[in-house]
Amino acid sequence: MNIEIRDVLYSYPVRNGSSKPALNGVTLGITSGECVGIIGPEGSGKSTLLLLLKGLLQSERGSIHVGETNVLTRGSAGKALRAKIGLSFQFPAEQFLSQTVREEIRFGMHDRSDDRLAECLTETGLDPDRYLDRSPFHLSMGEARRIVLASLLMRRPDVLLLDEPTVGLDGDGLSVLTRILRRESERGVTILLVSHDLDFLAEHATKMFGLADGRVVIEGPLARVVSNPEGLNAVGYELPEITRIHEQLWDSGQVPRGEFLRSRELRAFLRRLKPKGKG
């Protein structure tokens, strides 16, 4: 589903009765099936943007359309749209509503079958026998994040909005998330990833937006954004490891300068660079 965000203003109230804009005139367009990375320093408006896209907040100005429909549309059309938009919060425990993992994953769903539920949980790398009857509130952050992911998969979303999805995940969790995102991307799901992990974004995103003080300050194709130190510096980032690896390949002429490889191709190059007899 295409996403069109036009001139959005949203402010949070602050203590003395005034308000502070979290997003101030944000306009951006995302094509259906695209995976987009959103970066920016703390308080730049990244999470607010996702909450607006899910229809959990209402902008003071501007509009947000997902497909042809305004995300705030009332009635069954709006409800059906928002049900196809899956959002994972920055702190997974904030979105839990149920006393067991089983009830949490199938919350509000007509499909009560344990088979689909177990399948989704297994996809996230968690053993259903070990987790379904546990409280989601008694899990580590990494485990909780996998539960949220399972509940999103259960709903077969058309749009995925993931707020810092790698935080708290261990190495295995990161591999699981990578596999799921690749598959959902191939399925045509439109994906927005808010993350400080540029190496992770470089594996999935094709386009990047950088926010600062509630405004879009950088945008462009992935390769251009993650290899631009000045642009990254403007939003509190440095050149990531993935770019430094690419710089070696560009300098050696093995890859045309500016071309960015995904991990599968990159791995082949790194193996050739690896000293013999090590690792």
Binding site: D170, L174, E203, I245, R267
Partner: peptide
């Protein structure tokens, strides 16, 4: 111990992960 860490589910650097075929 990158290979051992990967087996244990512990995150390693991107370079080690790529070399170990785990990404």
């Amino acid at each position: 111990s990158a290979a051992e860490l990967i087996r244990l589910g512990v995150p390693v650097s991107l370079r080690d992960r790529l070399i170990a075929d785990e990404y």
